[in-house]
Amino acid sequence: MRIPSWLAQHVAALRALLVFTVLLGIAYPLVFVGVAKIPGISDQSGDLTLIGQSFTDADGNPVTKYFQSRPSAGGYDPTATGASNLGPESVVDTLSDDPEEASQSLLTQVCARSLAIGKLEGVDGSRPFCTADGVGAVLAVFHRDGFTGPITRVVAVNQTDVPFVTTYQGVTVEPATNGEDYQALGGVITPIRGDAPADPVVPADAVTASGSGLDPQISPAYAELQAPRIARERGISLDRVHELIEQNTDGRALGFMGEPAVNVLKLNLALDGS
């Protein structure tokens, strides 16, 4: 019996798929799984120092004798990789007494990290658009006519206690109330730059989460910032620390690819070993 041509097409398709599944889906990967076992070919494969880890204690506080990694959206859990995915204008926190309900804006996360690192390293942790208490310095400004007209009300949207400024253009700034959406009430969300230096002491990578959540590296600047603390905690010379940083820094490949970066785990292992 002749099978109809539409069916023949599908039969051919199925056979083709099976052939390719065997070739590409089974043979090809498995051959390389085998190849990977040949010594010298993939010595680094699955190297633990390729992925980062956090150097914190059980409570999440930094263990001070170790260089600290970057913040991670997934807490350096390889089974939950990924990023915060918060946008550049994520500046308004959701305030609530219930920690489940509350969430920090990206700005507040950055401000809080900067403040904490500043404190840990004994440097100025201030940043533009951050309050002194480490949240986003953001006001909801209410005008009579929406975007224009006299200001009628100003709320510091990320602060429930004392606002970071007392007045805004002559209007008293009030603290925010939990659960209130001031944007929806007609407030114009206005981040306040403040007078922090444009080039903060705490480097950018120290206050931002990586894309993978497993970034094994920090910038040389962040390592440099932490070096005095490490030297102090471990009682070794700052030069020795610098030397180890140097040894564990990957420069740009061929001099132009990517950015120089310091592998934190390797560096800490080296510290422990020395």
Binding site: H143, D145, F147, Q183, A184, L185, G187
Partner: peptide, 17 residues
């Protein structure tokens, strides 16, 4: 198709007259 987006945006920007 702009309309649903416009409605959303206008609603989000409550301050917009």
């Amino acid at each position: 198709t702009l309309q649903p987006l416009a409605i959303f945006s206008k609603a989000y920007q409550a301050a917009a007259p």
